[in-house]
Design a protein around this nucleic acid. Structure first.
Lengths: 237, 237
DNA sequence: CAAATAGTGTCTGTAAGACAGTATTCC
DNA sequence: GGAATACTGTCTTACAGACACTATTTG
């Protein structure tokens, strides 16, 4: 049999394949906290529980896995996040009552402001502070996925400024530093932090300043390249 | 409908799900080169081409995705590699002629010696030098997977000694350095390399030495913890 | 002895840690 | 002026790069 005949006679429905879904751990920074997007499950299984946004590949709409996860996130937040990265895939026979199932999980970051209006108008979507996640009962193995995503983001905060994508488009250096501090779980010397960022030339100074209390802080914007920049020397933790 | 009824009436065969496979990029170091394990495809599609070892989840035998990939690697090499790590998942409608397909790809490392006998007795399995991969025609998107795996391993060589798992159980420091140099694509100062490894306390000195030409080199073994150790400061590249 | 390879001593350069100091706002 | 916050100066420390030097083997 040649390949053409093989393909003509091949029918995917003849084979039992694991379920495959896509999930996202979407982080934002708001009210001085890291928060994760949770969605109330409208359908079985785990109906009524909170869980990560995600779902099945739509073979017509989606050209690749990232299309699927971005489509799902857009449905929930109204917008496409500016940073997304594949985290890992988890597949086994226990995680879903329907049987052997695989999820491809992504980590994404977004500014709270840009999806605020949309999320407030949808009562099945919330931003859950990362510190309160542990008390939540979540669907499937979504606790573990969030833990892994957070751990990866912590690592990134040691050698990149990727966490900046969780901030509003325009932000101050102390805000950026604070996101990193939350992730690392300890304070960073502000001098060290500023030096790194200045030398790497990762931010655009808007020229504006913003004051809440005390001296006003300069406002910055992330350069495009900042998603990919890696410091050769890590912060300690 | 409650969850129990839902599950009782649920049948995975009612839904069309993407094909899902698992692949591995298995590296070793031999004859002063990095090599990748390739397998000649015995079945359609892409029958007769070389490709990465991998295949479908066996829902009975495999408890998780890693079980699947380790089972496949064991079939091809006769042994379980001492280092394995999930690389990424790739899913789209173009990579496999059978339709929308997802692969979960792993990077693994093994000592050449431990699978030598087994592989030499199987004519459909070869170690292909990494420099000759580009000239090979490979199945599916396996070229890209190998490129990504190599890139990841290069990054690891800057801040870990994970590449050491591609060496024999007992090896010399110049050998370990050479693997890193191949991956990074440039020479490393031997003083720097030795200092890092000594300070991190990652190796066990066997007390033995081995000479080929010149002064004999001390022989070392990797400590268990060396798979997870990360230097806080990277080598330059 | 020379050639070859393993391994060390030591200087320089760079960037992070520590922390005290100054600057700019509001009241 | 004082409180609060932003930002800087500068010393110390850790560690990678560079490279010349010594050590141990074979022939």
């Amino acid at each position: 049999m040649n390949e053409q005949d093989f393909l003509a006679s091949y029918n995917r429905r003849d084979f039992l394949s694991p379920l495959i879904t896509v999930d996202a751990v979407l982080f934002t920074y708001h009210e001085e906290q890291l928060k994760v997007l949770l969605v109330k499950r409208a359908e079985h299984p785990e109906k009524g529980k909170w869980g990560l946004p995600g779902g099945f590949v739509d073979e017509v709409q989606d050209n690749c896995l990232e299309d699927t996860v971005l489509r799902k996130l857009k449905e929930k937040t109204g917008v496409i996040p500016p940073y997304i990265e594949q985290l890992c895939s988890v597949g086994n026979n226990q995680r879903d009552a329907r049987g052997w199932s695989v999820t491809v999980c992504y980590t994404a970051l977004i500014a709270h402001q840009v999806c605020e209006a949309h999320i407030d108008s949808v009562d099945s979507v919330i931003w859950c502070p990362i510190n309160e996640i542990a008390q939540q009962s979540l669907a499937f193995d979504h606790h573990e996925l969030i833990t892994q995503a957070r751990e990866r983001l912590k690592q990134k905060s040691l050698y990149s400024i990727v966490p900046g994508f969780a901030l509003p488009e325009v932000f101050t250096l102390p805000e950026l530093q604070h996101v990193h501090e939350i992730l690392i779980g300890k304070e960073i010397q502000k001098k060290s932090f500023r030096r790194r960022i200045e030398q790497a030339d990762l931010l655009i100074d808007t020229g504006e300043k913003r004051a809440e209390r005390g001296r006003p802080a300069s406002l910055y914007r992330l350069k495009k390249a900042s998603a990919d920049y890696r410091f050769i020397r890590n912060l300690e933790f």
